[in-house]
Amino acid sequence: MSFLGRALAILRKDLKAEWRTKARLSPMVFFILLMLLVFNFSFDLGGAALREIGPGTLWSSYVFASLLSLGRSFADERDNNALDALLLAPGDCGAIYLGKMLGNFVFLLAIELLSLPFFALFFNLSLGFFLLPLLAVFVLGSACMASAGTLFAALSNNMRLRELMLPLLLLPMILPALISSVEATGLVLANECCEKLFPHLQMLGVYAVVFTVLSLMLFEYAIEE
């Protein structure tokens, strides 16, 4: 089986498991709904506040939800020592990273798209074609979080206090991606397109590529038993 074939097999397995259990998607979307509720009472959200705190609220919810979601991606493999079986499979274990990363990417993107209507509702944001560039921000932002997050989930999987260590390690690392995602989202919501937006998308793209390449190189050390 080729490298890509094995990665896709793992992706297929994760998607199928999620489809049958719904263990990650529905709790995460509900979690984001709760986060928006918490933010509402913390900041008094409303139409006027959309520009100032809308993007920050949105991405803070996504980051916290993705921390919970990423933690699950290797925790599921820990039960019944399924990870050992994955590692025993012949070939480069970078394929495990790639499969898991693609799975996390799909989950995060789905969570973001599913919770966007709630956000639009609470912030009185009228959905329209001007939001189309937001899709690019979501895709690149999710790619950044999935690329770094999958590796850190694998790293913290073997640690004591793993639930605590994942956010401690991941949050400072994804700050560059978070900064650009929030800025880019703000520009899209303010309907300021393209010229100012491009450097931020570029930053997100570079971050995702750098972390994917580094993770593929370092994954075997991160997961080694």
Partner: peptide, 17 residues
Amino acid sequence: ILAFANVPLVYYAVDLW
């Protein structure tokens, strides 16, 4: 290794921000 690779990204992102 990751921490050091992240340093230039942090500087670039914060400069943009």
